[in-house]
């Protein structure tokens, strides 16, 4: 069996205790949530920490609740299955439930957590390989090497954000609650990212995602998630897109947002889509026209690279198709959009 590097496992029961252990490890520890991403990465020797700090027993990281102001709080250790099957999330934050339902396969969703999916390491076909494979290649700049095999002569790592739930959360204006040595902080998820495939978050690996907070959605909120992949299960996204449409009382779109993933290091919010969609009425011709415009805009703004497996030109050709289909699904209160 493929070997893990040796490590010890710590089992804190509170966030404070976890943070103390992390600080004491002086950079040699990593968080362990569901283990579905870090364990394969450990087996690939993409990291070799001395300790894993297991979050399994930290009660504060659990639970789904809605406060009196209608904000949803998702403990970071909430499993993807719980998110996908939660009736209130399905009703009020549908894009999130849909995105969670399309992550990998059933067992991975039972184990994998929403926090882990948000903080998922970026992925690349030249990186997510065993040590033997990467050594045969001569490594790449994301780990142990200097070269980029995606863009010859490239100076920045372009490994792809591959977290299905991140774009959904971004269209829903999610905020994240972070614990660090300095205490607690809260920030918009949209501000988390940086354009660096080696480490695409503006947080250090020692900081801890405690919870995700989502503001209430509008009375006439529509959302959907679309995912391109080869198989009906297990696969990471080859392209993913989340859609948000908020309708006014007259049934016209008042607010719209789209965010894509599996392109480059960051989840990729589409700009100017609201301009085209706002004021149109789903089901009417003006909406259909706007969808065409948005699809064209998406194709311009989303440029898949040969970073993850799969023909990147084909992935690009699918950007407008999946954008349209996901917009129509959202309008129809349907979805998720995938090939099944």
């Amino acid at each position: 069996m493929l070997r893990m590097p040796p490590f010890t496992v710590l089992n804190p029961s509170t966030v404070d205790e976890a943070m103390e252990q992390m600080l004491a490890a002086a950079g040699e520890a990593r968080w362990l949530a569901g283990g579905t991403d870090i364990n394969p990465n450990l087996k690939h020797r993409l990291l070799e920490p001395q300790a894993l700090i297991a979050l399994e027993g930290v009660g504060e990281l659990r639970g789904v609740s809605v406060n009196e102001k209608g904000w949803l709080r998702l403990g970071a250790m909430t499993t993807l299955t719980e998110v996908a099957e939660h009736a209130q999330i399905q009703a009020q934050w549908p894009a999130l439930a849909q995105a969670a339902s399309l992550v990998s396969g059933p067992q991975l969703r039972n184990m994998g957590t929403i926090g882990g999916n948000v903080m998922l390491d970026t992925r690349c076909q030249w990186y997510n390989q065993t040590h033997f494979w990467r050594k045969s290649l001569g490594y790449c700049m994301k780990k142990d090497g200097t070269e980029c095999h995606v863009i010859k002569g490239g100076s920045k790592c372009v490994a792809a954000a591959s977290n299905d739930t991140a774009p959904a959360l971004m269209t829903l204006d999610a905020e994240i609650e972070i614990a660090s040595g300095d205490g607690r902080a809260r920030m918009p998820l949209a501000e988390l990212w940086q354009a660096d495939g080696i480490w695409n978050r503006k947080l250090s690996p020692q900081e801890l995602l405690v919870a995700i907070h989502l503001p209430p959605t509008a009375a006439k909120h529509h959302g959907a998630y679309g995912k391109l992949r080869d198989r009906g299960s297990i696969d990471f996204p080859l392209f993913g897109i989340a859609v948000r449409l908020d309708l006014d009382d007259a049934g016209k779109i008042a607010h719209a947002a789209l965010c894509a993933v599996a392109l480059q290091a960051r989840p990729w919010p589409l700009k100017k889509v609201a301009d085209a969609l706002c004021g149109t009425t789903p089901g009417e011709q003006d909406f259909l026209d706007a969808v065409e415009q948005v699809a064209a805009l998406a194709a311009k703004q989303c440029r898949p690279m040969p970073n993850i497996p799969g023909d990147h030109e084909y992935r690009h050709a699918m950007v407008p198709v999946y954008t349209k289909r996901t917009l129509f699904a959202a309008a129809a209160k349907a979805g998720p959009v995938h090939h099944l």
Partner: peptide
């Protein structure tokens, strides 16, 4: 249903 190959006994 859980994958034993990705689960650590410590958890």
């Amino acid at each position: 249903p859980t994958l034993a190959c990705l689960a650590l006994p410590a958890t």
